[in-house]
Write a protein that binds this DNA or RNA. Structure first.
Length: 557
RNA sequence: UGGCCUAUGGUGUAACUGGCAACACGUCUGGUUUUGGUCCAGAAGAGUCUAGGUUCGAUCCCUAGUAGGCCAACCA
């Protein structure tokens, strides 16, 4: 399985434990903002937190960081919960930052009373101008020394809807000359004219992230609050806010930061993902090319594969870009064990077996999965005319071509050995039909001497008389660039892979027609495919998850 | 011209907080195989950003550089 060496977070936790922290007090949380769909980057945060909870037998909350109603929606809350459950995790408590609005408000009043917060009545531009730059200190707001009772009164008016958005904000009184820009009197409350998915219009003032997050951790008694590296500068503020309210007898949460996961050839910015959806570059949030959990699921990636992927990627503090090949390895590894095999011919060429009478048909029994003895077997129909993959025959084969050519033998998987005797071509010299003879004694599994005969190639095939047509959608990377994340949204178009999706027709063995959306198969010698929700009674639609490893193709490219 | 973080094979992560760098993916051989899949065996590939220092000994500690990242939203 995955390596057992500890990551730096586990080392920190173990140290805390050694120093006397009660293991029963360990508590984690996964805190998404419900303003979009979860993606592969979130999978890392989910797995990190939930696996930590599992390992240390600790509690873990799912907390929606719903402090900005402008882009938040109940549909995202629902989708996020569904995604996490699909990954196989369950949380102890389902929490909402909005449930703490009253507490946060009360604490804010306390802050004002203690002269640690004030109402600023300047515009956001004015406030920004006074903020200084990373190299120059900021200037105090003219409202910084506004009398406490005045701030208290305006803040109360804000809460009661008596001020419009932008008119006043509440700011923490920290340090306008701090080298950390976040400490320069951060805004902690603003007035917003938007209906919140949960509190609706009960509240018109909304707490900012920094003021909310640490206090929410504290309210929930989260012991280790894990977030990504870009929040490192927020840690000072996180601690400052905690200092204002913390009861020393309670658990004081600790923020620690890890590097986010970046996957080569894909983007994980919610804004850019939204752009792909809105500009119709993809067909929706669950388009199989999307790195969203819903997209990954629809593409055919299993929860186990995804979890194993982020576990093998590890947790550290440096920026990284993980190669797609690792993800692909993880899916193949998982699917290889679990998927039944099926035969599907995509670009067919007809074979006629000349030493079989017209109308011949024989039912063969074929094993479902050589990796799983319990997977059983299925029946396949063998007839006088069959279909093989056009690429499995060559008129003028190169030296190490193990497949069919005139004068050569191959085995039809689960059936007989055939030999090609003659090719029929059309006026364009394209192959229209291959005439073969079969070796009747070579039947698979018959136990005869001939059935064990070795031939270099084995082909998948399907009866040309009895098969079922299916639609196959093949996907490729969405971007031609290995790190599309570095491009701004308006440049994304220029690095798009125009051929990221193609649609084909496949000729499948009859057994496949029983599949239901969500069923995954290995199409023998091709790859892994999952039946899509777009399937109908008449026509099954499959999405290609990933191809099989292919040494032959690699060498000949 | 501020603060903080990071720096190990192509990629990612390790190395018992000082004892001449390991694992996985990828690549390349060979074997097995009724999937050019799987499986098995093996190989190549870094001497740990640079320069000093401490030490018998440094990927690990110190100093100074260099490179990359993050921070100036009434976003999270």
């Amino acid at each position: 399985m995955v390596k057992e060496s500890k990551n730096f977070i586990e080392i920190i936790i173990d140290q805390d434990l050694e120093q006397g922290f009660d293991p029963a007090d360990l508590c984690f949380r996964f805190p998404p903002e419900p303003n979009g769909y979860l993606h592969v980057g979130h999978v890392k945060a989910i797995v990190l937190n939930f696996e930590l909870a599992k390992k240390y037998k600790a509690k873990i909350n799912l907390r929606f960081d719903d402090t900005n109603p402008e882009n938040e929606d109940q549909k995202y809350i629902d989708a996020i919960k569904e995604n996490i459950s699909w990954l196989g995790y369950s949380w102890d408590k389902e929490c909402y930052a909005s449930d703490y609005f009253q507490q946060l408000y009360d604490w804010s009043v306390q802050l004002i009373s203690e002269d640690k917060a004030y109402v600023d009545s300047q515009s956001s531009e004015e406030i920004a101008n006074q903020k200084g730059t990373p190299t120059e200190p900021g200037k105090n707001s003219p409202y910084r020394d506004r009398p406490t009772h005045e701030s208290l009164s305006i803040f109360n008016d804000m809460k009661n809807g008596k001020s419009s958005p932008g008119q006043h904000v509440l700011r923490a009184k920290v340090d306008m000359s701090s080298p950390n820009m976040l400490m320069r009197d951060p805004v902690i409350y603003r007035v917003l004219d938007a209906s919140h998915p949960r509190t609706k219009t009960d509240w018109v003032i909304f707490p900012m992230y920094d003021w909310t997050h640490g206090e929410s951790d504290y309210i929930e008694q989260v012991s280790h609050s894990l977030c990504t590296l870009e929040f490192k500068p927020h840690r000072d503020l996180y601690n400052w806010f905690l200092d204002q309210v913390v009861d020393p007898k309670k658990i004081r949460p600790k923020q620690r930061e890890f590097a986010r996961l970046n996957l080569s050839h894909t983007i994980t910015s919610k804004r850019k993902l939204l752009f792909l959806v809105e500009s119709k570059i993809v067909e929706g949030w669950d388009d199989p090319r999307m790195p969203t959990i819903s997209g990954l699921k629809r593409r055919g990636y299993s929860p186990e594969a995804l979890k194993n992927f982020v576990k093998s990627a590890g947790v550290a503090k440096r920026d990284n870009i993980i190669e797609m090949s690792l993800l692909e390895f993880c899916v193949r590894e998982d699917l290889n064990k679990k998927c039944n095999r099926m035969m599907v011919v995509q670009e067919p060429v007809k074979i006629t077996i000349t030493n079989l009478e017209n109308g011949y048909n024989e039912t063969l029994v074929v094993e479902n999965n050589p990796e799983d003895p319990n997977a059983g077997s299925r029946e396949m129909l063998f007839t006088k005319t069959i279909l093989i993959e056009r690429s499995d025959f060559m008129i003028d084969p190169p030296k190490k071509f193990f497949r069919l050519s005139v004068g050569n033998e191959v085995r039809l998987k689960g059936a007989y050995i055939i030999k090609a005797n003659e090719v029929l071509l059309n006026e364009n010299q394209a192959v229209t039909e291959i005439l073969c003879t079969y070796d009747p004694k070579s039947k698979s599994g018959s136990g005869s001497e001939e059935s064990k005969r070795k031939v270099k190639g084995t082909l998948h095939w399907v009866s040309s008389e009895k098969n079922t047509k299916v639609t196959i959608r093949e996907y490729d990377r969405l971007f031609a660039h290995p790190s599309p994340g570095q491009f701004p949204t308006d440049k994304l178009h220029s690095i798009l892979n125009k051929d990221s999706m193609s649609v084909h027709t496949g000729h499948a063995e009859l057994a496949l027609s029983k599949s239901k959306p969500g069923d995954s198969f290995q199409f023998q010698r091709k790859g892994y495919y999952i039946a899509d929700k777009d399937s109908s009674e008449e026509l099954l639609v499959f999405n290609k998850t990933v191809s099989l490893r292919d040494n032959w193709k690699n060498k000949h490219k």
